[in-house]
Amino acid sequence: MELKKSKACVLRVGGTNCDLEVKVALEELGLKTDILHMNQLADGTLSNYQMLVFPGGFSYGDYVRAGAIWGKEIFTKLRKELGKFTDDGKLVIGICNGFQVLVEAGLLPGNSVAGVPTASLANNSSAKYECRWIYLRVESRQTPFARTIKVWDTLWMPIGHGEGRFILPSEEALNELVKENQVIFRYAMPDGRPADGRYPHNPNGAAYDIAGICNKKGNVMGMMPHPERAFFGWQTPSQRGKRKARGDGRCVFEGAVEYIKKY
C-alpha cells in the first residue's frame, strides 16, 4: 500500500505518556500518525489504520499490575476488532507498558486477544525502577519490525521500567518460543554476546535475557526497550564527544514502514 495513503494509530488511555515521541518517529519516516484516546475509538475506527501502537507509560496508574487494567479493557472492548486487525496481517507493536498490555490481553506470546496472560512481565529483580541504556542482540527476523536488520546485530536503546522481567510458566513454553523464532531481542553485553542474566546488562532479570518477542505470525511485537527514545542521533548519549548519526531504535520503525509499503 502506498505510504501516503497509510496511517498509524497510537492508542492511549489515562497514564499513557510515550505517545507523542512515537508519533514523531513514525511521521519522520513519512507515515501519518494519529494519537487516539480509547474513548475516541468508534466501531470500525481501527480499520482506517495499517499499524497500531500501544505506547509506554503507566496506563491507569498500573495499579493492580503493570498493563493489567488496559489489557482487560482491550479484551472487553476491542477483542473482535483487534482480532480482525491482526488476522488481516496488520502491524501491532507494544512498547514498554504497551508490551505489558499486550501480554496481559493475551495477545503475546499467544495468537489472539484471549484475555488470559500466558506470560508475565514481573517486578525487576533489582526490585526498583531502572532507567538506563542497554544493548540488544537481534535474535530473529520473524517480525517485519526486524526486517531491516540482521540477526546478531547489536542495538543500543534505553529502558525505563519497574516491571520488565519477562517470565514464562514453564521451560517448555520458553523452548517453544525460541523454536518458533518468536524471541526477537535479547539483552546483551556491549560486544553483542547475550547478557546471560548479568546485571545491569540484563537490567531486570528476564528469562533467557528476553527483551522483545513477537507472535507466531510475526505481525504483533512487544518490547521493553524504547526505540522511539533512540530514534535520532541527538537522543543517544555522546561517546568520546560523538553521537551516532542515527539512533538504533529507528530500524524498528523502518521495518514497519517497509512492510506497510508492500502490504
Binding site: 510515550c18 525502577y129 531502572e130 532507567c131 527514545r229
Partner: peptide, 9 residues
C-alpha cells in the same frame, strides 16, 4: 536510575 530521565525522548 530510579528516575526516568529519558521519557519524552
Amino acid at each position: 536510575r530510579t528516575y526516568d530521565h529519558e521519557v519524552r525522548g
